[in-house]
Write a protein that binds this DNA or RNA. Structure first.
Lengths: 210, 210
DNA sequence: CCTCATTAACCAACTGATTAGTTAATTATA
DNA sequence: TATAATTAACTAATCAGTTGGTTAATGAGG
């Protein structure tokens, strides 16, 4: 029984709009993304975007929820059967790094939203961001209580990890270009595994008692 | 002889436009900044912006050059009579931190530009950014040669420092809000000195031989 | 000191393109 | 046939940039 080829498929259209919107919003930013352009990319009429998502802001928030739910679930999943804080930290960094690398719209979106001090940030994004930080901070906290870490300011450590990973992803093309122009070492050939390995090693050394 | 009060002052007007543009571009970003709004803020006719800066892009580049020239000069000046790599590193971090804090449009602008992988980045900004990184990398390099640092990947260390500082500045309002909502520790009362002291301490520990 | 020509500084009102969002009509499918 | 999915054509606002002109300062000649 082969289904007849559907020329109208609501779910497919709605999903298509979301997928294309993720690409456009993260490469062009919110205000430089045109709904007309998005419609053309989906090969759908612009009115369909408003039919499914009501407003541009509504679409943007749908995009954000999609991305952040995904990464949070991935990290939680990878951490289920780990109990040592040191290994949990390692798993958090590795999972975030891999996700950020394969879904490079995430770092773009986060950096862009943070760049204006979150003045326009939707509540959904803000609450998702806090959730992720709370997860990280709780790992550190358990580590301190178990005596694996010392002298921890969780917010700063969090940015040293997540901020650095985000920047290493978004600056990739620029770092390659800079290496070509000036011949300087910009880690332009490093892959994400090397980067997260180095980060983990250094963060461990930084927080370890002695 | 007191000069008559000038009702027309080209230099003053041009400067006024640049100063207001810095504020607007760094809080709203390039495409969300309206030239009409800028003109109103300066209490000048919109045509004057184009009279002095030709295009919006031209104005934007003038803004960038102004900011980055200033910070580079400040860092170089503070570093003149220091020779030990460890102290040079410390001075770089402290100077950058203070500057970023008191000129908070710099972190905003940088994060925003980097968030789209520098696709639209003006050449002037890119070359200024490289200059600053080269300065930082050369400090680390001297440190390695003198045996003060080991196992250094300069690009990653640079982002761990500068990226973290930028994020700590731009996220200040969000961190305060998050603390109020969730009661979590977001370093919301830390001042910039504490932050850079902690960063310096941790980076030193991270790079020290042994 | 006055006057007049020159020009720099300034502005109101416009253009043409683009924007988010709407509407009313039209298909396709169950 | 009922309704969900889709569309063309529209609105009203906003945008960067231009135009054609008006003032105010300046400097030279009388």
């Amino acid at each position: 029984m082969t289904k007849p080829v559907k020329r109208r498929d609501a779910k497919k259209s709605k999903k298509l709009i979301l997928d294309c919107a993720i690409k456009l919003f993260s490469t062009n930013g919110y205000s430089s993304t045109s709904m007309e352009e998005l419609a053309k990319m989906c090969d759908l009429n612009k009115a369909m975007i408003f039919y499914y998502y009501k407003t541009k802001q509504g679409l943007y928030e749908a995009v954000i929820i999609q991305i952040l739910d995904e990464i949070y679930a991935t990290i939680i999943k990878e951490n289920t059967d780990i109990s040592k804080p040191m290994e949990e930290l390692e798993s958090f960094v590795k999972t975030y790094a891999l996700f950020a690398c394969s879904h490079s719209y995430l770092p773009s979106l986060l950096l862009r939203e943070l760049s204006d001090s979150g003045a326009q940030m939707p509540e959904t994004l803000f609450s998702h961001m806090r959730k992720l930080y709370i997860l990280f901070a709780s790992i550190l906290d358990r580590g301190v209580k178990k005596g694996c870490f010392e002298d921890v300011i969780p917010m700063i450590v969090y940015f040293m990890v997540v901020g650095t990973l985000n920047l290493m992803v978004t600056t990739k093309p620029l770092r390659i270009k800079a290496h070509e122009i000036d011949g300087i070492d910009t880690c332009s050939t490093c892959d994400m595994d090397e980067i997260s390995e180095y980060l983990i090693k250094k963060i461990k050394k930084m927080l370890k008692e002695k």
